[in-house]
Design a protein around this nucleic acid. Structure first.
Length: 857
RNA sequence: GCCGGAGUGGCGGAACUGGCAGACGCGCCGGACUCAAAAUCCGGUGGGGCUUACACCCCGUGUGGGUUCGAUUCCCACCUCCGGCACCA
């Protein structure tokens, strides 16, 4: 018997797969397609077992579908732009590209050593011009359609380093490098108009039936749809301050426009609150009787806002602008305050204060002694009196003190008052989203250059398609200073305007890396196209992705942006579907000592160490066996040893038998079998049924493995009984001591089914055994085993007999026994007799193949 | 606070549509093989009671109720943990 030497076997087969291009695919329309994808990787250095778990999950599905006759696209690539490369460059004086490409090379080796069946011919890296060319192309298309636009927006700025900081570089409100307090600066930046698709992204989420509920919920919350109305509170006659207040979004001239979802409470609106960023605030403060004090407060709020997010709750504070506006329903003047808790970027940046029916407004009113007026009365209990209330009443009720609407239930009042506002020109019904447009400008080097040119004469001009890609210059100084590294390269910045030919400046910001990852799954369908992002026909063949797996940390951004891009491509006429990912699986993390693996914690398990010690097959098997894919798992070396032990156990049984089994009939169907042989054959076919059912679409990989373990246990029991093992253990001579052709046939069926099914998890190990079993074409040519229904059917079945819900006996009857026979057998069983003696049997329930329930009293 | 998910042996987990709770593995205990150890193979392993024994009985899936012949599974209330969002008007 040959020893099981994983390292040799694995290297041999990996080499063979690479040489034959075993997992490359074409758009073969004669077969059904299956697109299996794992989220591509950020090339950060080395992958740990937590990362590779995801690739193994995908690999199991890809290998299964291949064996089931699907044409499977299973590609891999690199999300290669991003900040860490730049940080590493600053630290190590190594160019981001060199750092990135080195990491890619290493991690690709890791994946190959794990035997993941990727179509490497379609590999892509987003940092290469062949890829980001099409980011730029798409950006221009979006600009043409008004889906990309420019506006002022604030960025984090470190005054000491003189540089823009990404959100993740801001630690506790300070710069990650020097700790200096971060301030905010307004810059002109590019945005994608994802809000145009907010409604569709939300409603289509209902159709994503094969996505985890958790992810859908997170997306729904993120989009955050609220129905309400925008209502204008006009300035009193004679107060002209608002008229010159600027942007249209601030509302009709001469008023403050608020957004509310509770128009039914508007008679209780006793003040109006403006966000510190609101356009009217500057004007009101400037015109105040005491502008100095107010300005000081305002500045404090604006600074506070930054830190508020990090340091939790900030006390509600505000100040009176001294101005009033008119409540359009009561026609009474109400004071206008500035409040630190009102968000400038949501709604209109202004809200009506209804202290009696909103907790925040209540707290604010009590603090500053503002009037509390109850206008919704609860269905039961004493009537509310604004002055006496101890807390806001936020539920629905009946309107009171609300003019013609008094007496109406909240819901109805809401409808009537909204209609009233519209017909009287007081405001409009609106749907408000929490989702904001996607700001994609980054003042960074290592990203896709935004293909725009600023011309003094023509304004903003896109780079013409023929001049794309705008290549990222290689030479750049990494001082970590300045607002945008590309701005420091004159050869890059200074261009001629494509429209007028005059001198112009190139845009020096780069794109958010989430742009790269929002469409890479289409590029895999046509990875080397140099005339277009992809050929719609090819994407039409492969897309949508049938099975997509990755970390739940991408539940929101990546997975919403991708859904958005799918719709952009759809509206460009390039794809035909709405949703890019039909099925999503979010894999759980691998913990070590109760923590997420990280270099800084020093608890990283390196897959290469495990491969050296136990082999990639044992590692793959263990990681899939330890828990269902969605669950978090705790890494244990002992568990991995158990998997390695199982493989040895399989090897010791199957390998010595191979020479004998090669000559046996491929199927035992129709042969005259002993009881033991029939039992083994039954187990074989039951296992095929069980494993096939567990694998897809359920993806219960751990239970599929346990079924295979059961089959192996059964094989050992069979071998023990037939004296097979004793001779098998001495099988160096090549004989196994079995002559019966029936025995050989049954064993061959069992071993082959086992090897085929196990090959998803342990491909190298199984290739070796498959070859030893006499198959030349490799597993690539093998088909997934099909269960023989008749062979899997038991001829005897054990029934549990319950009397009044408690199991009192077990009985074995022929599988085809009639209900009456089973009932009779159950009733006459001595144990059952003992429990029904002296009672009357009221009812007998028979669950075929499982149980007899007797009700007696 | 809101939303989502989950609570099952010493541990990871299984039980698919309401039908024998604890499959499979880890760990532990015992046996075989061995001079011995490792490896391997076989057996045992939720708690309690009772018995010479075969057996049998009771309890048991976070807690308390409910529906049902029968509940880990469905319903109501609650507790705990994990994850997400968090002044979104």
């Amino acid at each position: 018997m040959a020893d099981y030497l994983p390292q040799q076997i694995e290297q041999k087969w990996q080499q063979q797969w690479a040489e034959t291009g075993a997992f490359e695919v074409t758009e073969d329309r004669s077969r059904p397609k299956f697109y299996c994808l794992e989220m591509f990787a950020y090339p950060s250095g080395h992958a740990h077992v937590g990362h590779v778990r995801n690739y193994i999950i995908g690999d199991i599905v890809a290998r299964l579908k291949r064996m089931q006759g699907f044409n499977v696209l299973h590609p891999f690539g690199w999300d290669a732009f991003g900040l860490p490369a730049e940080n590493a460059a600053i630290k190590n004086r190594l160019h981001p590209e060199a750092w990135t490409l080195e990491n890619i090379a290493y991690m690709k080796g890791q994946l190959q050593r794990l035997g993941i069946s990727y179509a490497w011919g379609r590999e892509l890296a987003t940092c290469l011009p062949e890829y980001y060319h099409w980011n730029q192309w798409l950006f221009v298309r979006m600009y043409e359609r008004g889906l990309a636009y420019r506006r002022r927006s604030s960025v984090n700025w470190c005054p000491s380093c003189q540089t823009v900081l990404a959100n993740e570089q801001v630690v506790d409100g300070g710069c990650w490098r020097c700790g200096t307090s971060v301030i905010h600066r307004d810059l002109e930046q590019w945005f994608f108009r994802i809000t145009d698709y907010a409604d569709e992204l939300l409603s289509a989420a209902d159709g994503l039936t094969d996505w985890p509920e958790k992810v859908l919920t997170m997306q729904r919350n993120w989009i955050g749809r609220s129905e309400g109305a925008r209502i204008t509170f006009p300035l009193p006659a004679g107060d002209r301050a608002g008229e010159s207040a600027g942007p249209a979004w601030a509302g009709a001239p001469g008023g403050v426009e608020v957004f509310t979802t509770r128009i039914d409470t508007i008679f209780g609106a006793t003040f109006v609150l403006l966000a510190p960023e609101h356009a009217l605030v500057e004007r009101f403060v400037a015109q105040a009787s005491d502008p100095g004090t107010l300005r000081a407060q305002l500045e404090r709020f604006r600074r506070q806002d930054r830190l508020a997010r990090l340091s939790g709750e900030v006390e509600k504070e505000g100040f009176d602008t001294g101005r009033t506006v008119i409540n359009p329903f009561t026609r009474q003047p109400v004071p206008v305050w500035v409040a630190n808790f009102v968000l400038g970027e949501y709604g209109t940046g202004a809200v009506m204060g209804v202290p009696a029916h909103d907790e925040r407004d209540f707290e604010f009113a009590r603090k500053y002694g503002l009037r509390v007026k109850a206008v919704v009365q609860p269905a039961d209990g004493p009537a509310l009196d604004g002055d006496a209330m101890a807390a806001a009443f936020v539920e629905d009720g009946t309107l009171a003190d609300s003019g013609e609407f008094s007496g109406l239930p909240s819901r109805e009042a809401w409808q009537r008052m909204t209609r009233h506002a519209e017909s009287q020109g007081l405001g409009t019904r609106t749907v408000q989203f929490r989702l904001k447009d996607w700001g994609i400008s980054r003042q960074r080097y290592w990203g896709t250059p935004i293909p725009m040119i600023h011309c003094a004469a023509c304004g903003i001009v896109p780079v013409p398609d023929r001049d794309l890609p705008v290549v990222l210059p290689k030479v750049v100084e990494f001082s970590g200073r300045g607002d945008s590294p590309l701005a420091q390269i004159p050869e890059f910045v200074n261009v001629t305007c494509p429209a007028c030919g005059g001198a112009a400046r190139r845009e020096t910001d780069t794109m958010d890396t989430f742009v790269d990852s929002s469409w890479y799954f289409y590029r895999f369908c046509d990875a080397h196209n140099d005339a277009a992002p992809f050929d719609p026909a090819r994407v039409g063949y492969w897309a949508p992705v049938d099975f997509y797996s990755g970390g739940v940390e991408h539940a929101i951004l990546h997975l919403i942006y991708s859904r958005f891009f799918a719709r952009v491509f759809r509206d460009l006429g390039m794809v035909e579907h709405d949703e890019p990912f039909a099925r999503l699986l979010t894999q759980g993390m691998v913990l070590k000592d109760g923590h997420v693996m990280s270099k800084s914690k020093g608890n990283v398990v390196d897959p290469d160490d495990m491969i050296r010690k136990y082999g990639a097959d044992a590692l793959r098997l263990y990681v899939m066996f330890v828990a269902p894919p969605e669950k978090e798992v705790e890494w244990t070396d002992a568990g991995l040893e158990g998997s390695a032990r199982f493989l040895s156990r399989v090897w010791r049984f199957v390998e010595p038998l191979c020479p004998t089994l090669r000559g046996a009939p491929a199927s035992a169907a129709g042969l005259d079998l002993t009881t033991a042989e029939r039992a083994l054959r039954r187990k074989t076919h039951q296992t095929i049924q069980k494993v096939t059912g567990d694998l897809y679409p359920r993806v219960h990989l751990n239970t599929a493995i346990s079924a295979l373990m059961e089959l192996v246990n059964e094989l050992y029991a069979f071998g023990e009984q037939g004296g097979l093992l004793r001779s098998g253990r001495r099988a160096g001579e090549g004989t196994t001591g079995i002559e019966q052709v029936e025995t050989c046939a049954v064993l061959r069926e069992a071993c082959e089914a086992l090897v085929l099914m196990l090959s998803l998890f342990c491909p190298h190990f199984c290739e070796e055994l498959w070859q030893a079993l006499g198959h030349d074409g490799g597993l690539a040519a093998a088909r997934w085993p099909v269960a023989d229904e008749a062979a899997a059917r038991a001829d005897e079945v054990e029934y549990a007999v319950q009397v009044n819900g408690k199991v009192r006996a077990r009985l074995t009857v022929a599988a085809d026994a009639a209900d009456q026979e089973i009932e009779a057998a159950a009733r006459t069983h001595p144990q059952v007799q003992a429990h029904i003696a002296g009672r009357t049997v009221r009812k007998v329930v028979i669950v075929r193949g499982r149980l007899v329930g007797i009700v007696a009293n």
